[in-house]
Computed example of a mutant assay.
Amino acid sequence: MASEPAKAPTEPQRLWADPADLSAAVAAAQSGDEGAFRVIYRAAQPGLLRYLRVLVGDDAEDVASEAWLQIARDLGSFRGDSEGFRGWAATIARHRALDHLRRERRRPSHSMPMEQLADRPSDDDTAGSALDAVASDAALALIARLPRDQAEAVLLRVVMGLDAQRAGQVLGKRAGAVRTAAHRGLRKLAKLLERPGTALPAETGHGVTGAAEEDETTQ
């Protein structure tokens, strides 16, 4: 019997454990507790780096450092809970990434071959496999093939675990638009993973195509 075609989930699931509640640590860090700031840094940095790697490629560490400098400087003005902090930090990181790409957009790029995606998923559940693939660092390059709005929606919803409303605040869009973009992005990832011999895109040192374009909602 032929298997039914896989369907993308209506709501993206998280790929890692639910993020820790940082509300107490944020409040303590705002009062000058350096240990608490280290706690929020260790909790938020991995997701920010994955997000930035798709936006700016090899420059993610540098951009993340710029973002954390601003986070440390402006932390006293933040008001909100744990998820609010993650969304606020993602917004700062996104602004720094767009600034960086605008500065670097005329820099020549150099292609470099990358290995093919090692374990191509079976055709049993390509949508689920697309979600699983996002968990690997190599597969972030596949997300970079998506249109920018879809790539960012997938990263914010699936990788960073923000709800649609928070992700919409980061992107300056309505929650419904973010849900739609994430859904379409996951469908495209599923189709990419269905192709035999799917190869990762050439490494150029930059992230998703078009990420340096002006975005009036982030200015």
Rank of each mutant, 00 (worst) to 15 (best):
R166C: 04
E213N: 07
D99W: 11
A20G: 00
V63F: 08
L69G: 12
V170Y: 07
L156V: 10
S122D: 15
L22Q: 03
K173T: 10
L186E: 14
G197Q: 13
A29Y: 03
K191S: 14
W68L: 06
E34T: 02
D215M: 07
E66P: 03
E213F: 01
I143F: 02
D74I: 01
A182L: 09
D125N: 14
A167V: 11
P201E: 07
T180A: 12
L48W: 05
A211K: 07
A133K: 06
A151D: 11
D149S: 10
T218Y: 06
R79G: 00
V134G: 01
Q30D: 03
A202H: 05
R120Q: 15
L156D: 10
T217S: 14
L189N: 12
G76H: 04
Y41V: 05
A164G: 06
Q13M: 00
T10A: 05
T10I: 08
G161A: 04
K7A: 04
I143Q: 03
G57S: 05
A64F: 06
P5W: 07
E83P: 00
M1F: 01
K191E: 15
D123S: 13
A118Y: 04
P147C: 02
V63L: 10
G80F: 03
R86C: 02
A139L: 05
D132K: 04
I40W: 01
L193W: 11
L55H: 06
L192I: 13
T91M: 07
D124R: 13
G172H: 10
F37H: 02
T209L: 07
P108N: 01
Q116S: 04
T209Q: 09
H110I: 07
D59T: 11
T204G: 02
E66M: 13
Q70W: 05
G35N: 09
R79C: 00
V158Y: 02
A167Y: 06
A89L: 12
R102W: 08
A141K: 08
M114E: 14
M160W: 04
G128I: 03
W16A: 00
L69H: 07
G87A: 15
A93V: 14
A133S: 12
T126Q: 12
A211F: 14
L22F: 01
L52D: 09
A2K: 14
